Amino acid sequence: MTFPGRAVRGLAIRTGNPANCAPDHTSFTLDFEPLPAGRSGYEFDADLDYGFDDYHRELHEECAPAISQGVLLNLAGAPKPRGYGELPPAVDPAELGPSIAVRVVLVKVRYHLVDTSPAPHAAAAWEVTQRLREALG
């Protein structure tokens, strides 16, 4: 059996508080979809176009990979990232083994001009993935 056994959509998380003078605001929604039968691996899709201005696009280019990294950390069995400071070491999706066959889609995201940074996004993505794993047993 591969993870996930079925599609789970609309897993949302919101952390931090904009305007609290800490760059810990996250707000995003992920869908987890099994890859087609016979395929294993990990795919991440964050091709959103909300008409981001240059600054929001820059945030997206920094934070979307952090979201992917948080999912990968959880799938690899790594502990939850601290959520502040530097991002934890990267996980190579090839290391996850044949039991992982998942496509993760970033379906919605909101960034705050001042209170957004990558590390909290990695921690929040780890948490969303953990909730999914616990729900699927």
Results as ranks from 00 to 15, higher is better:
Leu59Asp: 13
Val107Gly: 12
Pro79Glu: 15
Arg82Thr: 10
Ala66Met: 12
Pro65His: 13
Arg131Cys: 10
Val105Gly: 08
Arg110His: 08
Lys108Val: 06
Pro34Gln: 00
Thr129His: 03
Leu30Tyr: 03
Glu62Asn: 04
Val109Thr: 08
Leu136Pro: 03
Leu72Ala: 13
His112Lys: 01
His121Glu: 09
Val91Thr: 01
Asp24Tyr: 08
Gln69Tyr: 07
Glu62Gln: 14
Pro81Glu: 07
Leu48Gly: 02
Leu136His: 00
Tyr50Val: 06
Ile13Trp: 03
Asp53Ile: 07
His60Gln: 09
Leu113Trp: 06
Glu127Ser: 14
Asp54Lys: 08
Thr129Glu: 02
Ala90His: 03
Ala78Asn: 06
Ala22His: 09
Val128Trp: 11
Phe44Val: 07
Leu30Thr: 08
Glu58Ala: 15
Lys108Cys: 10
Ala125Arg: 10
Asp47Gln: 12
Gly38Thr: 00
Leu87Ala: 08
Asp92Lys: 00
Ala66Pro: 13
Leu136Met: 12
Val114Glu: 14
Arg14Glu: 12
Pro81Trp: 02
Thr15Pro: 00
Asp47Ser: 15
Gly38Gln: 01
Gly70Asp: 09
Glu134Tyr: 04
Ile67Phe: 07
Glu86Val: 15
Val109Arg: 03
Pro93Ala: 03
Gly70Arg: 06
Ser40Phe: 09
Glu33Ile: 05
Asp47Lys: 08
Glu43Ala: 08
Pro18Met: 05
Tyr111Lys: 11
Ala119Gln: 12
Gln69Pro: 05
Cys21Lys: 03
Ala124Ser: 15
His60Phe: 07
His60Asn: 12
Ala64Thr: 11
Phe32Lys: 03
Gln130Asn: 14
Ala125Thr: 04
Asn74Ala: 15
Phe32Ser: 01
Glu33Gln: 13
Glu127Cys: 07
Tyr84Glu: 11
Pro118Phe: 05
Ile67Leu: 10
Trp126Ala: 03
Asp31Trp: 00
Pro120Glu: 14
Gly70Leu: 01
Gly137Leu: 08
Ala119Phe: 10
Val128Tyr: 06
Thr116Ser: 14
Asp47Tyr: 05
Asp115Trp: 04
Gly51Ser: 10
Glu58Asn: 13
Pro23Asn: 06
Gln130Phe: 05
Glu43Tyr: 00
Pro93Glu: 05
Val109Gln: 08
Arg57Asn: 09
Leu72Thr: 14
Leu35Arg: 02
Cys21Met: 13
Tyr50Trp: 07
Val102Asp: 02
Thr29Pro: 02
Ala124Asn: 05
Gly83Lys: 02
Arg57Cys: 02
Ala19Phe: 14
Leu113Phe: 12
Gly41Ile: 00
Ala64Lys: 01
Ala37Ser: 14
Glu134Pro: 04
Leu136Lys: 04
Leu59Met: 14
Ala19His: 12
Glu61Thr: 13
Pro118Glu: 11
Ala19Leu: 15
Thr129Lys: 04
Arg39Pro: 01
Val104Cys: 06
Arg110Lys: 09
Ile100Val: 15
Glu33Trp: 04
Glu43Cys: 00
Gly77Asp: 11
Arg103Tyr: 07
Gln69Asp: 14
Pro118Arg: 00
His56Gln: 14
